[in-house]
Design a binder for these strands. Structure first.
Lengths: 209, 209
DNA sequence: TAGATTGTTAATCGATTAACAATC
DNA sequence: TAGATTGTTAATCGATTAACAATC
């Protein structure tokens, strides 16, 4: 199984969705699925499903289809979800607290190891079993808890500084929820998620409609 | 100003980012900005900035640039953010509660009018001034509070049913946070946001790196 | 006029879709 | 063999980038 192939961003989101369908199908006792089944369940075209999979190998049997459990395992491996990942959330505001409790992360193998903040009133407290630590302890905690991923959930003005600290601490991938462009060293994987922009996509198309 | 032009999805996210930069520039007293300034601040190319704006009209002055406040106003109008939008969140779990308190929505003109749930233990309570209402009261509340947008923050199994109810209640745009494909009538604007898939994007590139 | 920057067209790049040979 | 479905190539579609005339 190859890795680090540059594939369309959208392919990763689709693979994630395929995997969820596959495990559900498997649990229902459906052992064999076709690209058409996957496509229908996930809202894409069968050609797209086959193309997405073709980046990584040959997982099916011509004339037959795919074994649902097997393909599920392959996709989880491709996505790097055959193991657990330790995640730091920076920012113990509403968004940070929320993300830390979001079960969807845990279900896919992401363990929120610690929430970091620099507000002394918050540090030392817990949010459903997750410690809030001072941002100054980031470096040691990253090592101690083997944290590799960081989620930035602080206001825009603080985002770049936090990103720099995360990188310095040894984190290798970052999701930035702050609505601002930040830059990091090129060997760090960075992704920005703009929650408000998602709603703005709706209002763009609804205005004057 | 035209509307309803089909533009690349990514353009909307970028316009959102441009607008945040522009208002900041305006507040700093920078009255004129070039596509190069905008590009640098938002991490895109100057050509991209000009192209994105060109879908909607001519907002600049050749040889000079753009007036920051003016262009800000234009973009906010394009995105439909020159007015407030009333939003319903369905699901008073961790994610729903979090999103309801997320200040980033409010700052862009999105008012969370009500959180809906069908758990009797939650109904009647408040989350920082926002009422939790029973899902059965959706239809009346949507009319009463003039709600036009819905956010689905329920488990995957319940998402389609909730979407159907939102549509029946008269909602016109939906963000689906559940990791499943749902379908709605074609005159409803639908968008799926997969928080876990965002992290999976990181792990895809980090595995074996 | 010289320098700067827009708006727009054409070229390039990349992703999706259609078609079909391979093969169960 | 006939029917079904994969894997892959070629065609299409769409988005980004480069280039430049227009114009301040």
């Amino acid at each position: 199984m190859l890795k680090k192939i540059k594939i369309p961003d959208a392919t990763i989101g689709r693979l994630s969705l395929y995997s969820r369908y596959l495990i559900e199908a498997h649990e229902k006792g459906i052992t064999t699925v076709s690209s058409q089944h996957i496509a229908k369940a996930t809202g894409v075209t069968p050609a797209q499903v086959r193309k997405d999979l073709a980046y990584f190998g040959e997982f099916g049997t011509r004339g037959v289809g795919y074994n649902s459990k097997e393909l599920y395992n392959y996709i989880m491996k491709i996505l790097g979800l055959d193991k657990h990942w330790s995640v730091a959330i920076v920012g113990a505001g509403n968004l940070g607290k929320a993300l830390s409790q979001y079960k969807g992360f845990y279900q896919r193998g992401f363990d929120i190891a610690c929430i970091f903040d620099n507000d002394p009133k918050k540090v030392g407290k817990k949010i459903s079993n997750i410690n809030i630590c001072h941002l100054d302890s980031l470096n040691e905690k990253v090592k101690e808890l083997k944290i590799t991923l960081g989620i930035i959930a602080v206001p825009a003005q603080a985002a770049q500084e936090v990103a720099d600290k995360l990188v310095k601490a040894g984190i290798r991938g970052i999701i930035n929820f702050a609505p601002i462009n930040i830059t990091v060293d090129e060997n760090i994987i960075l992704r920005r998620v703009d929650l408000s922009a998602q709603l703005e996509y709706l209002t763009y198309y609804l205005e004057d409609a």
